[in-house]
Design a binder for these strands. Structure first.
Lengths: 245, 245
DNA sequence: CGCCTTATTGAACCCCATCAATATCTGTGG
DNA sequence: CCACAGATATTGATGGGGTTCAATAAGGCG
């Protein structure tokens, strides 16, 4: 603890950290007060508009970040330009690639986002001195692995309708106002992706996404509230359509 | 180091460890000699025939293991029984789920396998006292995440022919006799999965797998050597067909 | 040899992609 | 405020890649 005490003498924890989601559910949740204090010395909150490339498929990026607000899409490309979104990140997920500086996904802000950035070097220092952080990063990697595998099942084995149902469900669960999730009542969901992005996420085309959504509306499972808003009759119904546990 | 010295007094490193693949490229590669010695106190080599369920989708398993020989398939099921293989593991991959005892993939030996098992408790101890091990596990998780995402691109966006080409390529690269990989000459590849498993891996049906393989034969990209053996004209040609970097 | 599992081949169909047209949204400038 | 242009979404018509159903062939093992 010596190191952290020395480095944080006289500092105070920023207000932002106290109410920050990352402090409660994210990467910072496993840090001692003094470790967090040290980290906060190097962090900076930054806003980016939708469409900003936060990590590139081959560029070197010198910062890591916590996602505080908004949605980030992780995507990959084939040689001939077909795209697949391989993951979505919601607050308070961690953005970046520990160990390797060049990875092969690109991360783009799907909505306007706010992140809490800090330099690569800081993460390296913290990973040495604060095992709690390392463990959290490890856990997040395992969670992302689980998510990726769950989505592989969807990509490989489910129909367009099932894919859409699962996607809406996924978004609803991630953007829940942290209350207990109500599976039985109608519920308003904001869709953070364009039709093209949804298609790239589900391994479909925009046309199929559009058609499938209108069919779900016709069947009464969804109601159209706007281009990017729907009302879900009940999450349970969605689950049933998706044939998923 | 005190702990390890106390616990390993008078012990000698088993012969097996010295030539073990895991010691060189796997989880054990980042351990100090004395840490490895401690671990070896608790390990046991076990053989399982093809088809053995090593990790169940909801069962609790009390051991971790290194895969020493053979191939293990990780798979998931939808509610109504459709299956998707979400990963293949080759020696010297690590088998198990740190942090959580119940996960939602099942691991089945695709071929006869040999593993080096040790109890859950041992891993917990090691993760506390040997940071090198934790880091390796973290790295493997990130590699598996990369693999999973690469495969998502394949599942979502590539044709049956591309999928098969990539699959053969993948197998060839993982079962390489550790020499530099020759992309230009003919090369014999043993396919460790049945047609049904290949189908479940690629998100296809057995019929499509069969048809696509014979088409690749007709096109001269592959030669049939046996049900589970093919000769690949050149890995470069396969790559070209797969439209992958 | 005979039985069972696994693989290949064939024919018909269907879901989703593709191509094409129209509609709706968004923002910008007159 | 409206007009217009470009992007985004919806809807329609057609076709193809892969599934489905069905039959034959080829191993594997008693």
């Amino acid at each position: 603890m010596d190191f952290f005490e020395r480095e944080t003498r006289g500092l105070e924890l920023p207000e932002i950290c106290k109410s920050c989601e990352a402090r409660h559910k994210g990467i910072c949740s496993n840090l001692a007060d003094i470790e967090l204090l040290y980290l906060s010395k190097w962090t900076e909150q930054v806003d980016y508009p939708a469409g900003t490339e936060l990590l590139s498929q081959d560029h070197h990026v010198e910062t890591y970040a916590n996602l505080l607000k908004g949605v980030v899409k992780l995507s990959k490309l084939t040689d001939d330009g077909r795209q697949q979104i391989v993951g979505l990140q919601f607050a308070p997920d961690f953005l970046g690639r520990p160990f390797s500086d060049v990875g092969d996904v690109s991360a783009v802000a799907a909505t306007d986002v706010r992140v809490c950035e800090f330099p690569r070097e800081t993460l390296a220092t913290m990973m040495e001195k604060a095992p709690g952080l390392t463990a959290m990063l490890h856990r997040q990697a395992l969670v992302e692995l689980e998510d990726a595998r769950e989505w592989m099942l969807t990509l490989g084995r489910r129909s367009a309708t099932e894919k859409l149902a699962l996607f809406i469900l996924d978004v609803a669960l991630h953007t829940d106002p942290e209350a207990d999730i109500d599976y039985t009542h109608e519920r308003r969901v904001e869709i953070p992706l364009s039709r093209a992005d949804i298609a790239d996420f589900l391994g479909l085309t925009v046309e199929t996404v559009s058609r499938t959504l209108t069919r779900l509306m016709d069947d009464g499972v969804l109601r159209r509230l706007g281009k990017r808003h729907v009302a879900v009759k009940s999450l349970a119904a969605l689950k049933a359509i998706a044939h998923a546990g």
